[in-house]
Design a protein around this nucleic acid. Structure first.
Length: 256
DNA sequence: ATGGTAGTCTAACTA
């Protein structure tokens, strides 16, 4: 089962890219972030025509998440239970007995801002919820745009992207580590040791052409799934296409 | 570090 995460930065603009990539890569499950679409505008029938069942939770202009899968999606959960949040950032479902939690983690803008504090509160709520989810569903994948680069290998310039910088700050990395400490593993690092492999490149300053990226799109697998995670990677291809998302899909393959 | 670009939507916010 190929399970992927992709921040499309507007599904309205990127639907042709998503269609092309579904055909090229043939994932079984995809978590999408930043659809920026209200639910009545979600292209559900088009995706069904392409063989993907889908569930979604969106809003106008910002945020918006969806799950696509070839097989039925069961026990769908939208949002973090018990955490009041107007922003549509979380959707979860179970596919072939594997729990999939799709996250669009808060960006946080800058260290010390209100948005940064919201990011840390949000991550704490996600942590407590995932702890409970793991009890119910030992076979679990947490994927998404984490807006956190795990370590120095995951940034193009560790001097700029340091312990005081948004996406790499000490508190953000500690929050990610707390998630991993629940019994989750960075799927990418099970099969790739190298630094300098990124999933996001800023549109500004020709970030992609100069490969000034970060790895912030992650697929975490639970202890129970670890031995079945046989391959993982980041597909840079759609980032090379005309008018691309600023993110590339991250994926992990789970042996059935 | 700044400002640069992109999406949504035409002013300004988010990333």
């Amino acid at each position: 089962m190929r399970i992927a995460s992709w921040n499309v930065n507007s599904l309205n603009v990127r639907l042709p890219h998503l269609e092309q990539w579904l055909a090229d890569f043939a994932p079984d499950v995809v978590g999408i972030q930043e659809t920026k679409l209200e639910d009545h505008k979600f292209p559900d029938t088009r995706l069904l025509e392409l063989g993907y069942r889908n569930v979604f939770a969106g809003q106008k202009t910002y945020n918006g998440v969806a799950l696509l899968a070839r097989d039925p999606i069961e026990d769908v959960q939208i949002g973090i239970p018990g955490f009041e949040d107007e922003q549509k950032r979380v959707i979860a479902g179970t596919v072939n007995g594997v729990r999939i939690i799709n996250l669009y983690v808060v960006n946080g803008q800058d260290v010390g801002t209100d948005k940064y504090e919201y990011k840390l509160r949000w991550l704490a709520a996600v942590h407590d919820w995932i702890a409970a989810e793991l009890q119910k569903y030992p076979q679990l994948v947490v994927l998404g745009d984490f807006n956190i680069a795990p370590d120095a290998r995951d940034v193009h310039d560790p001097v700029v992207w340091n312990e005081n910088h948004i996406l790499t700050s000490t508190a953000e990395r500690a929050a990610l580590q707390r998630l991993l400490d629940l019994g989750l593993h960075d799927g990418f690092r099970l099969h790739n040791d190298a630094g300098g492999i990124f999933s996001w490149w800023d549109y500004r300053a020709a970030g992609f052409r100069r490969d000034l990226g970060l790895r912030i799109d992650l697929t975490l697998v639970s202890d129970a799934l670890k031995s079945r995670a046989v391959a993982s990677g980041i597909d840079r291809e759609p980032r090379t296409w005309e008018r691309p998302s600023d993110h590339a899909p991250a994926w992990v393959q789970i042996q059935q």
